[in-house]
Design a protein around this nucleic acid. Structure first.
Lengths: 250, 250
DNA sequence: ATCATTGATTTCTCTAGAGATGTCCCGCAC
DNA sequence: GTGCGGGACATCTCTAGAGAAATCAATGAT
């Protein structure tokens, strides 16, 4: 930020971190490699344990390294999944569900780990966006190669799906959008907000995120013809696992 | 991740962090408020300074708090700028340049802090995407209310702009896209990749990012008719300052 | 009135040590 | 082979102390 006129040398822990980061980013270390541990750094630089920890904490907080208790600290390079922007979704693809996934996971196995479906009072934000107090929420967790990478929560106005509440959030064949279409609320317009931040502890736990991993949050609202909001889908993605892709014409 | 069967109580520093986080997120503290400092926590909980520091470091690394040396630790809530997806861009808007910004900064002042324009050899990634070794790069830094919030680097194939090199990266009236149009390479198609990660030290420095702030990276490629790539624009955004917005029809 | 200095406060950096906790692997018993 | 015990090892948590560096307000000299 504001640099003082005198150039102070960075503290030891930071210089060590810089050296290690260079090694990681220059490619001389690869994904699962083990970094020098606390003891090794203590010996090599003649520093105390706390200082060695601090150096490693820098890399861990940057998301470039992952500590494994009782084992060591390991390099973590990002191996993102490409996730196409909804621009790509066509009505035909809705019925297939996984179509947009299969081509994007580079052969890695993709599964859903259903969490739960239930009716609940809407939070303030959801109530404002969906224009109702009472919603059905369908929460899911997505796994790639057995590891959780995404949380999703779809909110449906309860009054809109009255009587069909059992079958709507419970997708069934053709997916949720087909169900909405059956009710005469086929989505015609979408808005999508994308943001990134550090995860809440609960999110970090559910996604198994090591320290220093941001999450990407996509909030998509589907509107039926006439501008009626029919679904709010909030997706929380492990930022290390995802690249979003949008494409469009001028 | 894998939870042990016995529920261990979290360590003290983590419980303190949890308490403070609740206070911040519940709204009982607001944006610039001062958190209890190291000394206060030491006295209140009867712990050592290092432990108090550890508790505060949790919040700092989560991006919820910002330390100011010699002053204290302060709450930081995100105040995002809405940034519309390029889907919104129309040819008429290109000519205005700032149109997509003025409506999105909520009245905050938006300025550009030009960094430099120069011809340089392409990095491996840029060479692959733009299909050339030799590019002009135009780097900019964007400020809102005097604070840096975005870095941008536009890459143009050097052979494509041969002879006009002086005027192309140097926008001029009508913006870069108008210049490309004059050369017969009006962009017709775009792809955009969005990812998020923790910033590199250099990025953090240029953007003045406190610890725990991720960056959003948008890589947009503009293609002229015929599929010729004419620009690679890489934008690095302070994730605390931006919300991306896309909207589209089914 | 303006500017420089001082002092109190607070975060930052680092040392030294110790016990707890989780992981890995080898060897032994079954 | 399989499963279990135990030791080696590494990270994790915490204590206690001390000097460095930045901020801010009050004090004092010009």
């Amino acid at each position: 930020m504001t640099e003082s006129p005198v150039h102070h040398e960075p503290p030891i822990y930071r210089r060590i971190a810089d050296r290690l980061r260079d090694q990681i980013l220059s490619g001389s270390m690869s994904d699962g490699d083990r970094l020098p541990g606390e003891n090794a750094l203590m010996a090599e630089y003649g520093i105390a344990r706390a200082t060695a920890r601090q150096a490693l904490a820098v890399l861990i907080n940057e998301g470039l390294a992952v500590p494994r208790r009782g084992s060591g600290v390991y390099v973590r390079l990002f191996r993102p999944i490409r996730r196409h922007g909804s621009r790509r979704l066509s009505r035909e693809q809705w019925g297939q569900g996984r179509a947009i996934w299969d081509s994007d996971t580079r052969g890695r196995s993709y599964t859903v780990d259903e969490v739960h479906i239930e009716r609940e009072p809407a939070t303030e934000q959801v109530a404002r966006l969906l224009d109702t107090d009472d919603v059905w929420v369908r929460r899911r967790r997505y796994l790639v190669d057995g590891r959780p990478v995404q949380l999703a929560a779809s909110h449906f106005p309860a009054d809109l799906v009255e009587g069909t509440a059992v079958t709507l959030p419970d997708t069934g064949p053709g997916g949720v959008y087909a169900r909405l279409g059956d009710l005469g609320y086929s989505p015609a317009h979408f808005t999508e907000e994308v943001r990134a931040r550090m995860p809440q502890p609960k999110e970090a736990e559910l996604l198994g995120l090591p320290a220093g991993t941001p999450v990407i949050i996509i909030s998509r609202i589907a509107y039926a013809a006439g501008g009626v909001p029919v679904e709010l889908n909030e997706m929380t993605l492990d930022a290390a696992s995802y690249v979003l892709q949008y494409d469009f014409d001028a």
